[in-house]
Amino acid sequence: MIYDTIGSGDSEWAGKSATAIREIAEADGSVLLVPVGSIEQHGSHLPVATDTILVDAVVHGATERAGEDVPVLVTPPIWTGFSPHHLSFGGTLSLDFEDLRAVLEDVARTAIGNGFNAVCFVNGHGGNAALVDAVVSTVGIGTDAEILGTTYFSLATDEVSSVRDSERGGMAHGGEYETSLMLHLRPDLVADADQRDGTLWDEHYEWGGGDLLDGGSLSVYRPFDSYSESGAIGAPELASAGKGERIHEIVTRELAAVIVAIHEHNR
């Protein structure tokens, strides 16, 4: 995993031989997971790799919960995403929409060639969501394998809501949700509490969503400097490692259920 030694997990594609990968791929109901992250600013208190670190950790946590009977592998994370709305703050690396789409399509298509029955993209950055949805269709139309996609923080939102202390808008970019997860998984990369400065999400349109748990029904493009001076949106001051542990437990359990369902459907 990105926060550990490559090849340390049983589901880690990068640490296996080509022969071992093909054996897993050719098993009945095999599933390949592709974590998709980003390198972008997360205020002054979180590293720019936050989205990549978190999605990779969630995916590997979910595969452990899915059980040894599920033939599943996880590719190395796609470490950069579509993040033009963060560029003004610096520290951000972004691909063009078409370039990232081509990367995801190529990864999926070449992986399918090993014999996988299903490929699921697991996204960890809001700016990638529409693109991942599109790739599900562009890859799916050309293969008999089942192609799926999800964004991990869209899973089990009602249960995660029971963990929060912030009001609506507090679990947005670099807010209570992501900061708590980072405090649980990589506290060494989180700045001290006095540097956790965020602004509650305040979208002009009521249909535009409130935070990671409430994406809204209306898509709106705005650069992030129109929402926050620090680059963080939400309430990172309310984050804690205990909340992060609970959020991690909830979302990995839910994603594990998705993985098992995909496996069973494709047997």
Rank of each mutant, 00 (worst) to 15 (best):
228 S>Y: 05
6 I>S: 10
39 I>T: 15
161 S>L: 09
175 G>L: 03
111 A>L: 06
223 P>Y: 04
105 E>T: 12
214 D>R: 02
2 I>F: 15
190 V>A: 00
242 G>E: 15
107 V>M: 03
147 I>Y: 04
242 G>M: 10
167 E>N: 10
141 I>L: 10
80 T>H: 04
225 D>G: 09
3 Y>P: 01
189 L>T: 07
75 T>H: 00
102 A>C: 09
227 Y>G: 12
147 I>S: 05
50 T>R: 12
250 I>E: 07
187 P>G: 02
54 L>M: 09
260 V>G: 00
45 H>C: 05
117 N>H: 10
198 G>A: 01
163 V>S: 01
69 D>I: 07
236 P>C: 11
157 T>K: 14
62 A>M: 05
65 R>L: 15
72 V>C: 06
244 G>N: 06
100 L>P: 02
110 T>H: 14
28 D>H: 12
88 S>F: 05
245 E>M: 00
28 D>C: 06
162 S>G: 12
189 L>V: 02
92 T>G: 08
244 G>H: 06
169 G>M: 12
164 R>G: 06
55 V>K: 09
235 A>C: 03
225 D>V: 12
41 Q>P: 03
69 D>K: 15
242 G>I: 07
29 G>N: 11
158 D>P: 00
260 V>W: 01
196 R>D: 06
7 G>L: 08
234 G>L: 03
56 D>M: 08
239 A>I: 08
113 G>K: 06
41 Q>M: 12
139 V>C: 11
40 E>S: 05
14 A>L: 13
50 T>F: 07
75 T>K: 00
102 A>K: 13
231 G>D: 02
141 I>M: 09
82 F>V: 01
157 T>W: 04
257 A>L: 01
251 V>H: 06
54 L>T: 03
263 H>R: 10
4 D>E: 15
162 S>L: 08
103 V>S: 06
33 L>R: 04
159 E>W: 00
116 F>P: 04
128 N>T: 07
163 V>N: 02
47 P>R: 07
154 S>P: 00
107 V>G: 01
93 L>H: 04
240 S>C: 02
253 R>E: 15
118 A>Y: 09
148 L>N: 14
95 L>F: 08
126 G>K: 01
125 H>P: 13
121 F>I: 03
43 G>I: 04
101 R>T: 09
164 R>A: 11
264 E>G: 06
236 P>T: 08
20 A>F: 10
161 S>E: 14
57 A>N: 03
234 G>H: 08
82 F>I: 00
193 A>D: 15
142 G>C: 08
132 V>H: 04
9 G>Y: 14
51 D>G: 01
40 E>L: 02
